[in-house]
């Protein structure tokens, strides 16, 4: 009987598609809740530094004077505690993994809007400029 049981598995395997994907040519199979990498909306960040304090891996550095927000993708353990603590909801969790980089390419730095002033300053504040190092 064992032979027939094996035959069942063999036939199933012959006529089914491969269960692997050609990642990264095809994006990985992800759910809505999956934790891939942290993204930031620079226009909403008020440089409150809550994310920096809550990060267990110390991957996030927020510079209040320079108005920059920086994450080291190789230090980040993708626990999403920064996303939960962010008061303006400018941090979000993207379900896809970050792109592969070289050993020095893990640092991702953006210039952010900074704290809101009482007088509206239309163009000075909201200038999100991205640069990758």
């Amino acid at each position: 009987m064992t032979y027939f049981q094996n035959a069942k598995t063999i036939v199933k395997s012959l006529f089914s598609r491969p269960s692997t994907l050609m990642y990264p040519a095809k994006p990985a199979k992800k759910m809505a809740l999956s934790r891939g990498h942290v993204t930031i909306d620079p226009a909403k960040c008020i440089t409150c530094r809550s994310c920096q304090r809550k990060c267990p891996a110390q991957a996030i550095v927020v510079d209040v004077k320079e108005k920059t927000w920086e994450i080291d993708r190789f230090r980040c353990i993708i626990c999403a505690s920064c996303v939960e603590v962010c008061p303006t909801k400018c941090l979000a969790m993207d379900p896809q993994y970050p792109e592969s980089t070289t050993a020095r390419g893990g640092i991702y730095k953006v210039t952010v809007a900074g704290p809101k002033k009482k007088e509206p300053a239309p163009d000075a504040a909201a200038k999100p400029a991205e640069k990758k190092e």
Binding site: M31, L33, S34, R35, C79, A80
Partner: peptide, 22 residues
């Protein structure tokens, strides 16, 4: 490991992580 994949999929759908659920 093929059967284990089903368990991991359920874990990812409910928690967000395959092996580190957090």
């Amino acid at each position: 490991w093929r059967l284990r994949e089903h368990i991991l999929d359920d874990m990812e759908a409910t928690t967000g992580g395959r092996v580190i659920q957090g």
